[in-house]
């Protein structure tokens, strides 16, 4: 039996050399700091938003073993609320994002409360159906402006000081990076906390976790809410980056896309979703002019990943390193 999560990359790396993980993290942060001078900032902001979205999604699938097929609801719901707050109510960006994220948390509480009653495939179908319900709501509700979406959302001044709308996009980029790092840190700490250990226990063997006295329902619900909230943070930030909240954000294809990113990068790995998001966003950028071919290629990648490449990019690398380390020891 091949379990859904394929790696435990974090643990052996720490036992080998405690500093290696920190060095990697430091290197990546430095890279992220200089990146806007090397690459197009809007592309990087898009990738970072999706990376946070995928990390939030991975918290559920990778560490609790719950496949949510409706995460677009949280991303899109937060995007709509943030866009509406910033544009119609004139909220400053930090308040708009906070409100959007809170909306996603509320939505996550309701959806999670309903969905955790079922497991496995049913869980996926329930989340998909609930998200579709939100999609139809967004299609009809007046404040979302239907097919047009909420356009020309002002980015505003952060804390009244920093103008996020300045044309070089640098301020906005560092703001997005900060949002991503906050979200990523929360997820990292969650995974490596006692709470995270219980989540993994539920993933591996839920009846056993119950027999040990854990109220698994509550753990699953809290994980679901956390995942939804951070997906909301990603969506809220994305709404300010593109100054737009539209139906594509709540569409079921968006839910499929985040599954793809996580799968490509590596389910249940810390950095996998980030790598997956950058790969998928890059691919979409290059293929944007070919219309439906983007979807077709995404489908092909889905099939290939499931059939041959279940560990994903990061999972595969971690597996190789682990095998190498094992050989050295013996």
């Amino acid at each position: 039996m091949d379990s859904l999560s394929t790696t435990t990359a974090a643990a052996p790396r720490r036992s080998l050399a405690p500093s290696r993980g920190h060095l990697l993290a430091l290197g990546l942060v430095v890279l992220a700091l200089v990146a806007p001078f090397l690459l197009y900032p809007v592309f990087l902001m898009k990738a970072l938003c999706f990376a946070l979205f995928a990390c939030a999604f991975n918290l559920l699938i990778g560490y609790v073993g719950l496949l949510s097929f409706g995460h677009a609801a949280f991303m899109g719901g937060a995007a709509y609320v943030t866009a509406h707050a910033a544009k119609v109510w004139g909220f400053p960006p930090e308040a708009a994002i906070l409100l959007g994220t809170a909306a996603a948390a509320v939505l996550g509480t309701v959806f999670g409360w309903l969905a955790i009653r079922r497991q496995g495939i049913y869980f996926a179908m329930v989340t998909l159906a609930l998200a579709q319900m939100l999609y139809f709501y967004a299609l009809q509700a007046p404040f979302t402006h239907g097919e047009d979406g909420i356009q020309a959302v002002p980015r505003g001044r952060l804390f009244g000081l920093v103008d996020l709308g300045e044309p070089s996009n640098l301020a906005m980029y560092y703001f997005v990076l900060a949002m991503f790092l906050i979200g990523f840190f929360i997820i990292y700490r969650t995974i490596h906390s006692p709470f995270g250990q219980v989540l993994k226990a539920i993933r591996e063997n839920e009846p056993r976790a119950i027999s040990l006295g854990y109220k698994t329902e509550q753990y699953k619900l809290v994980a679901f809410i956390l995942s939804a909230t951070l997906a909301g943070l990603a969506g809220a930030t994305k709404a300010l980056v593109f100054q737009l909240a539209s139906l594509t954000d709540v569409d079921w294809t968006m839910s499929g896309e985040v599954v793809l990113m996580t799968l490509v990068g590596g389910l249940g790995t810390v950095l996998g979703p980030v790598a997956g998001a950058f790969i998928v966003v890059t691919m979409e950028n290059y293929l944007a002019q070919f219309g439906s071919w983007v979807t077709i290629i995404q489908g092909v990648i889905f099939v290939l990943c499931v059939l041959t490449f279940r560990r994903g990019v990061v999972g595969e690398i971690a597996h190789l390193l682990q095998r190498r380390a094992g050989r050295k020891e013996s």
Binding site: G256, L263, F302, V303, V306
Partner: peptide, 14 residues
């Protein structure tokens, strides 16, 4: 079982 869902999802969007 979830891999079956993902695989057929891929086939569907192709």
């Amino acid at each position: 079982h979830l891999y079956g869902l993902l695989l057929t999802f891929g086939l569907a969007i192709i």
